[in-house]
């Protein structure tokens, strides 16, 4: 799907680009008033690659992710996505008054309209991330780390082609952090591409590439 902000929102097409390119971002700019947060970001994400997005606080990492997802319209530039998406947001946006099971069953009902859902994959995720005892717990009563795991499960439930993680490991203990990376690595081997906003130094060893946001532009490191 493509949005070219100079040509307007009608210009959306699907499935553009070479087959192994999952996401292409060309000259993406985003300004809030006079403040230019993104200044011509250009990069591509290939099938089965894990890319880290790093940068100082306030450098525009979350803005870039939100522009890629279409939550925030770019001021100019072009985003081409040729993939089904998963998104693990940094924000605390899950419904706090429903249980983990109720949330996941709603998500499954929504996702199975467009994806082939595998019940055993969901069960395995819950089991590996030790979420089974929390199935009937209201989301608002979960600890920070468990809440984070629910967001992670939600983003990969349908095994999307491309997942965007915005600081997904905040609050995870070391054991869960390792399980997280095991799952992400398995997804990568199955062809999923990952773009991950991260500040954690340990994450860097898992990245195939690192994109650094500096003064609004992306440097491929």
């Amino acid at each position: 799907m493509t949005v070219d902000s100079q040509q307007g929102p009608e210009d959306i097409t699907r499935g553009m680009g070479p087959p192994d390119i999952r996401c292409r971002c060309e000259g993406l700019c985003k300004s809030y008033g006079r403040k230019r947060v993104l200044d011509g970001c250009t990069f591509a994400l290939r099938r089965g690659e894990i890319v880290g997005l790093v940068g100082e606080n306030g450098s525009g990492k979350s803005t870039l992710v939100r522009c890629l997802l279409g939550f925030t319209p770019p001021t100019s530039g072009r985003v081409t996505l040729c993939a089904s998406l998963g998104y693990c947001p940094q924000d605390d946006l899950l419904n706090r008054r429903i249980t983990v099971e109720e949330h996941l069953s709603l998500m499954r009902a929504i996702l199975e309209r467009t994806h082939r859902m595998d019940e055993s994959f969901t069960s395995a995720l819950l089991s590996r991330l030790r979420l089974v005892p929390f199935r009937r717990t209201r989301i608002g009563e979960l600890s920070g780390g468990t809440y984070q795991k629910v967001k992670f499960v939600t983003s990969v439930l349908h095994r999307p082609d491309l997942v965007l993680f915005d600081e997904p490991c905040d609050g995870l203990d070391w054991a869960m952090y390792q399980v997280f990376w095991e799952i992400v690595t398995e997804l990568k081997e199955a062809g999923t591409s990952v773009l991950m906003v991260s500040h954690m130094i340990h994450d860097r060893s898992h990245f195939d590439r690192i994109l650094e946001l500096r003064e609004g532009a992306v440097a491929d490191g």
Partner: peptide, 14 residues
Amino acid sequence: QDFQYFRYCVFNGL
């Protein structure tokens, strides 16, 4: 109260 959650659901295909 949960409008952001439902936006997220819509993003996921609701």
